[in-house]
Write a protein that binds this DNA or RNA. Sequence first.
DNA 1: TAAAAAATACCGACCGCTCGTTAGATTTTT
DNA 2: AAAAATCTAACGAGCGGTCGGTATTTTTTA
Lengths: 205, 205
Amino acid sequence: MKEKFILKQEQLFNTAAALFAEKGYHGTSINDLAQAMGLQKGSLYHYFKSKEELLFMLLDEYISAALLEIEKICALNVDAVEKLRLFMLFYSSFYAGDRDRLVLLINDIDKLSEALRLKIIEKERRYTKALTDIFSQLQAAGIMKKIPPAVAAFAFFGMVHYTCKWFQQDGPVSAEALGEMFLEIFTNGVFVNPVTGGDVNAGEN
Amino acid sequence: MKEKFILKQEQLFNTAAALFAEKGYHGTSINDLAQAMGLQKGSLYHYFKSKEELLFMLLDEYISAALLEIEKICALNVDAVEKLRLFMLFYSSFYAGDRDRLVLLINDIDKLSEALRLKIIEKERRYTKALTDIFSQLQAAGIMKKIPPAVAAFAFFGMVHYTCKWFQQDGPVSAEALGEMFLEIFTNGVFVNPVTGGDVNAGEN
DNA sequence: TAAAAAATACCGACCGCTCGTTAGATTTTT
DNA sequence: AAAAATCTAACGAGCGGTCGGTATTTTTTA
C-alpha cells in the first residue's frame, strides 16, 4: 500500500502551505514544520528531498490544476464574451478558494532558484496569454475598449490574487458570489450609468 | 552637521528597500545589506537598532506619505464622483511609482511583530475606510451598483497593489496613464456597451 | 498461519554554516 | 580634543541537511 505515504505527504503539503503562508518560506524552518507534524525534522526528508523542492511541488501542483481547467475553458466552442465570463468566474473562485496556496504563489515564487521558478512562470505565462487572447478577440469585435490587453489581464489578476489579503471563505460573501462581482466590475464597471470625464476611448469602434 | 547622517540613512533605506523587495525580508541578511553599502555589518547599527525596526521604518514612512495625501483628497469640497476620481488617480500613480516599497508592503508586513504590524495596519485601515465611505456615498446617491463597498475597495486595491508584480515604470505605459485605465475599468468597465447576463443588479435605484 | 525477510517510517545526534546582535577598539571628521 | 563613523571579533542560536541506526509495518516464504 503506497496509500499511506501519499496520504501523509498530502497532509504534510497542507501543513507546509499553511505555515509558509503564515510566516513566509524563509521564516518557516524545517523544524517548525516537523513540530507541526509531530515528527523530528530528519524524518521529513522521506517526503521531499529539499525545502526548495517542497515549495516547488506545492506551487506546481496548484498552478497546474488551474491551468488544466483554464485550457478546457479556452477550448470550448463559445463566443469570446462567454469565454471571458467562464474564465473570470472559474479563476476567481479557484484562487479565492485556497488562500494558503495563493499566498505562496504571490509571495514566495521568487524564493525558488532560477530553474524551478521558470517552470512555474512558464505556466503562469500560458494563462496570461489565454486571457489576453480573449481580450484581443473582444477588441477586434469592437466589444471592448482599447485598453492594452496585458494591462487589462493584470488588472484582473490583481483583483483576484489580492483576495488572499482580505477575503474570508467563511465570511458573508462566497467565492462564487465574489467571482460574479469581479466579472461585473470588470466588464461593466461599478457605476449604474457610464460617467464620462476621464474616458480613455469609450464608445468608439 | 546632522545632514550627513540623515543623507546616509536615506541611502541605506533605499538600498534596504531594494534588497528586501528582491530577496524578501528573511532572505536578506544584515551582511548583504552591509556589503551593498560598502560597510561592515556591525557598522549598520549606527543607523537602526534592529532589523525589524528597519523594516518598520521603511513601511511606516511610505504608508504615512500616502495617507497624508489621501486625507487631503477626502477633505476637498467636491462631489463623490470627483473624489473617487482623484483618489484612484493618486493611489494608482503613488503605488505604481515606488515598486520596492510596494513589494514590502504586500509581502513583508507579516514579518513584523504584532505591535509594530498593528501600527501599519491601522493606517491601512484608515484609507480603506476612506474609499469605502466614498462608495457608500455613491450608492446612496444611486450612482453606483449595490456591490459591497468593502469588496469594491479591495478589488481596486488589488488592481493597484498587484502592479508591483508586472508593471515597469520605464515601459510603454506611464503610472499616470495606468491610473486612468484603472479608473475607467473600475467605473465603467472594459466593455463599450454594457453586456448583461450575470449582472449583479445593474440598472436599479 | 507463522516465521523470516524486506521495505518503510522515524529518531536523534551531528555537520558546517549563517544569522542578528553586541562591545570595545580604531579611524575619520569636526 | 571631542564626537561621529566605522571596524573587528566574537557570541549564542538556529539554519538546512546528513547519516547510522531502530522501530514498525508489509510482503514473502515455508
